[in-house]
Design a protein around this nucleic acid. Structure first.
Length: 325
DNA sequence: AGTTGACCCTGGTTGC
DNA sequence: TGCAACCAGGGTCAAC
C-alpha cells in the first residue's frame, strides 16, 4: 500500500542508479500498465529508447524521471506496484513484471528497472511537462538545478503538493478544509488538496489527534486542522525514517527489502487490539469501499462546532450521522 | 464547484 | 474438496 513514505523510499533508491543513465531498451510485457500513456503522442518504447534520465522526482505518490527530451517517464505504484533495480542478468521470471527498462549508466554500467505490479492499479507513461502553477520546484528530488525542476508532468499537475513539500501552504489547506462539509478522512485522501496520504496514514494521523474520520471539515477549528496537519507530518516522517510500511511482500523498495513501519501502527489494521492510549479495542468500519480503523473511545464525533477562537461564539451545528452506512 | 459512490484489477482468503 | 464471493485500495470519473 504505497503512500508517500513508501514512494519516497523507492525514489531515493532509484535516483542514484538512474540519474545520468541512458535508456537502451524498453520491454512492455503487459500493455495494461500503460493505461495512462497517451498513445496518440507516440509509442511508449520509441519515446523512451535512447533518452537520458536527468533525475528522479516525487510529488505525493507520483514519481517521475525527467528526460533530456523535455518529457518525463511518469510512474505510479497504485497499490501493488514495485520498481525493482536489478542487474541485466537477473532472471526474468517475475509473474507480475509488466514493464522492463534496460539502462546504461556511465558509472554503474548496465542496469535493469523492472516495474512489477500484481493488481495493475499502477502505471507508467511518457508525458509532457508543464510549468508549475506557483512557479516553485515541482516535487522532491536531491537535485533541482535542471530546467525540468519547475515543470511537472501534465497528468500530475492537478495533484496538490504534499505536506512535506516546503512550498505546501498550510494556511490554504486550513481554509480549504474548513470550507468542506465532507468527513475529514475523505478530505485527507483528496490528492487534489493534500497529496501523499493514503488509508494507512490517514487512520494513524486521525488516531494521533483523537479525531473521528467522519468529522466534517467545516466543524473543525483552525487549531484542530493545524494539529491534524502536524500529526500527518509526524506520521509520514516517522514512516519515512523506518523505511515505509509493509505487511507482506506487496511493497518492497528497489532492492526488494520490505519496510517495517507496520510494527508501529496504532490504529490501522489493529481491529480488536487495545488502543495503545486507553485500551479500548480498535474498531473497523466501512469507508468508501475500504476500511477505517479507530478507537471508539478516543475518536468520537463531536456534534458541535469546535471553538474557533473567534470573538463571537459559533452556533452549534449537527455534525452528521456517526453511523457509517 | 462540492459531494458521493462506483469502478478498475488480481490473487489470497473465507465461507458455504 | 470445490468454487463462488469477498477483500485489499489509489485515483479517476460520472452523476447529482
Amino acid at each position: 500500500m504505497p503512500e508517500l513514505p513508501e514512494v519516497e523510499v523507492v525514489r531515493a533508491g532509484l535516483a542514484p542508479a538512474v540519474t545520468g543513465a541512458r535508456i537502451a531498451g524498453v520491454e512492455v510485457l503487459d500493455a495494461r500498465s500503460l493505461k495512462r500513456h497517451d498513445a496518440a503522442s507516440g509509442d511508449f518504447e520509441h519515446r523512451l529508447t535512447g533518452e537520458r534520465i536527468e533525475a528522479a522526482v516525487r510529488r505525493g505518490k507520483f514519481l517521475w524521471l525527467p528526460l533530456a527530451s523535455g518529457d518525463a517517464l511518469v510512474g505510479h505504484l497504485g497499490m501493488s506496484g514495485q520498481m525493482l533495480l536489478r542487474t541485466p542478468d537477473h532472471p526474468g521470471d517475475d509473474r507480475h513484471a509488466r514493464i522492463r527498462l534496460h539502462l546504461e549508466h556511465p558509472e554503474h554500467g548496465e542496469l535493469r528497472v523492472d516495474f512489477v505490479d500484481q493488481r495493475i492499479f499502477g502505471s507508467m507513461a511518457v508525458d509532457r511537462m508543464l510549468p508549475t502553477a506557483d512557479g516553485e520546484i515541482a516535487g522532491y528530488s536531491a537535485d533541482v538545478t535542471g530546467p525540468w525542476a519547475r515543470t511537472i508532468p501534465s497528468q500530475v499537475a492537478h495533484i496538490a503538493r504534499d505536506p512535506l513539500d516546503p512550498a505546501f501552504r498550510d494556511d490554504e489547506f486550513v481554509r480549504a478544509v474548513r470550507r468542506r462539509a465532507s468527513g475529514i478522512k475523505r478530505i485527507l485522501l483528496d490528492q487534489g488538496l493534500i497529496s501523499g496520504i493514503g488509508n494507512i496514514y490517514a487512520d494513524e494521523a486521525l488516531w494521533a489527534v483523537r479525531m473521528h474520520g467522519e468529522q466534517p471539515g467545516d466543524t473543525l477549528s483552525p487549531r484542530r486542522v493545524r494539529e491534524l496537519l502536524q500529526a500527518v507530518r509526524e506520521v509520514l516522517q516517522k514512516a519515512l525514517a523506518e523505511g515505509g510500511t509493509s505487511f507482506d511482500a506487496q511493497y518492497v523498495n528497489v532492492n526488494g527489502a520490505s519496510g517495517y513501519f507496520s510494527h508501529s501502527l496504532n490504529a490501522y489494521g489493529q481491529t480488536g487490539k487495545p488502543c495503545p492510549r486507553c485500551g479500548t479495542p480498535i474498531v473497523r468500519e466501512a469507508f468508501m469501499n475500504r476500511s477505517s480503523h479507530r478507537c471508539p473511545r478516543c475518536q468520537r464525533l463531536r456534534m458541535t462546532r469546535q471553538s474557533t477562537g473567534a470573538p463571537t461564539p459559533t452556533p452549534e451545528r449537527r455534525a452528521g450521522s456517526p453511523a457509517p452506512r
